[in-house]
Design a binder for these strands. Sequence first.
DNA 1: TTGATCAGTTCACACATGTTG
DNA 2: ACAACATGTGTGAACTGATCA
Lengths: 337, 337
Amino acid sequence: MTKRREQVGLVTMHSIASAAGVSPMTVSNTFRYPERVQEETRQRVMRIAAELGYVPNHAAGNLASGQSRVIGAIIPSIKNSSFYKYVRGMQDTAAEHGYELVLKLADTICHEHAAIQTFIGLRVAGIALVGNEHEPAAIDILQKTALPVVESWVLGNPIDMAVGYSTTAATKAILDVLLARGYRNIGFIGYERTASHRFTERLPIFRSVLAQAGLSSDLVHLADEADGFGAGPKALEELCRIGPRIDAVICPTDIVAAGVLFECGRRGWKVPDRIAVAGWGDYEIASEITPGLTTVQPNAYEMGQQSVTMIVERARGNRNRGRVVDTGFQIIKRAST
Amino acid sequence: MTKRREQVGLVTMHSIASAAGVSPMTVSNTFRYPERVQEETRQRVMRIAAELGYVPNHAAGNLASGQSRVIGAIIPSIKNSSFYKYVRGMQDTAAEHGYELVLKLADTICHEHAAIQTFIGLRVAGIALVGNEHEPAAIDILQKTALPVVESWVLGNPIDMAVGYSTTAATKAILDVLLARGYRNIGFIGYERTASHRFTERLPIFRSVLAQAGLSSDLVHLADEADGFGAGPKALEELCRIGPRIDAVICPTDIVAAGVLFECGRRGWKVPDRIAVAGWGDYEIASEITPGLTTVQPNAYEMGQQSVTMIVERARGNRNRGRVVDTGFQIIKRAST
DNA sequence: TTGATCAGTTCACACATGTTG
DNA sequence: ACAACATGTGTGAACTGATCA
């Protein structure tokens, strides 16, 4: 009786039902279980729905069924291409299974917490996170709600499930390349003040590998994560101050590595003759810049696929809590080392 | 009676209501209209809600109130930093107004249509689109639902509202820079098979400006939009074949421009002595690469702010249908021209 | 096809208290 | 002293649109 106000979505299942001369349930069925409805009625309902511009109300459906076809993914950044393939993998796989992927950006664990709340509030089918560092309150609420959650780009000790690759193994592998090629004064660029294990795990491995090789591991510079390309020149300057004989450097991302290459260009340094440069992530620029960057290529697309697959399986009742999948990585050798 | 199945979000308003010894309505009020409930009860309810890890169900609230605090944005790509500032602007502004921003990726107008359907299905408060080329069916449904819609990065003839800058004016401005510096054999790189006015508007202006200056405008190459950096080398090769005396080139994005710079480096061509290179978009790489790229800097952050502001205002009842806002642009002059 | 149901919100109203003419 | 009227808090019924049995 109380006609509240002009609603936005005026077209409801009722309106098409009466326009088509069937019950609302029949309309519902034509959308969710087309095979339960006779071809003829189905077509009539679809036609009228299209004419009236009907879009089923997820909110109502979600509420009634307790289910959702939306998966929420939270990514730290869209500043560069690092998550591009990952998101593509998620999106394509979600579509295959009849799910929708929506994204939220969160560059700090505090924002991540807020994004998690939003997704829980929306009652999504599952949540994909990057990394395994989160606010305690966020972990707490994820555990309480028992929503399917995948942490990606990282392995081990998951809230629920995880898919990633071993940064430790990748760090070793890239150092092996440099050592095999005879570099002996290897520098390391990392990030300071980052909470992310994706980055912080690398330095200890760097130190232990060099120690085992009987080499010094003093050439370390921690850059500001916000700097992007700009971190390269700063880091190179600092490392050269510490050890002028530096002959190779490994970077936290290809972006930083590209920044180092730009700086080498300005100094007139030949790469890799004067200094070898290794990147990380196989960003698009790695293969296009000259010299091409030797880099760690995570299987980002597969990681995205796997993340969504695990969420969908769990939403369908499979019990793969605690599952951890390693999607591996490759070392791409190019001219920079 | 029918206890359906283990619901995901077990904590409801009812459970905190009984735990706090108040009615569900009081719980609802403490969240939505805190001033309507006594300080003491408010705190008790809040405490219990926090303890139980309660997250209000947007789906239910949305359904009951017909309102939403979620804004949906559809962006074509996260492959590079072009939309980074834009999204930041939207996100920050949404947060200021107490709204949430969620993203969907759509690289074709077909995918965009699907994303629009998803957002309408979610009954979001409004939708932000990039560009003004859409599927007819998508336009149709947006008009029917009368949802607040902003088209950005583009001006004119909006479905509902628009915020952007003039690609025409920007193309003229960047050509003025090149002409003023004496370049006379100017090449143009555009995109082929792109539906987007953001790009297709540029070529006619290029032609007319050069014609007015009494110069030829034959040096045109249309690249594959998917190519990124790789489009640069291909385009340069083609343009040199058409006109070996080419002395400047304007690119559709800074990424393509960077690709051109890489290729110039390989050829040993000095920039801008042998050839001047102009980019578009003020991507992060533009200021970091050597030589720095002369480029068009749209006010992307402001565009994002403005988009969300317009949606929020409309959601609050302001009638700014048909409004078009020009956020302008700057030409950033660097060493590449 | 019908009604009950999901988890909230709107709206109208109850109730206690205080203020006013 | 009393009705009349605000005011501040809390409650119950009806309702949202789609789904399930």
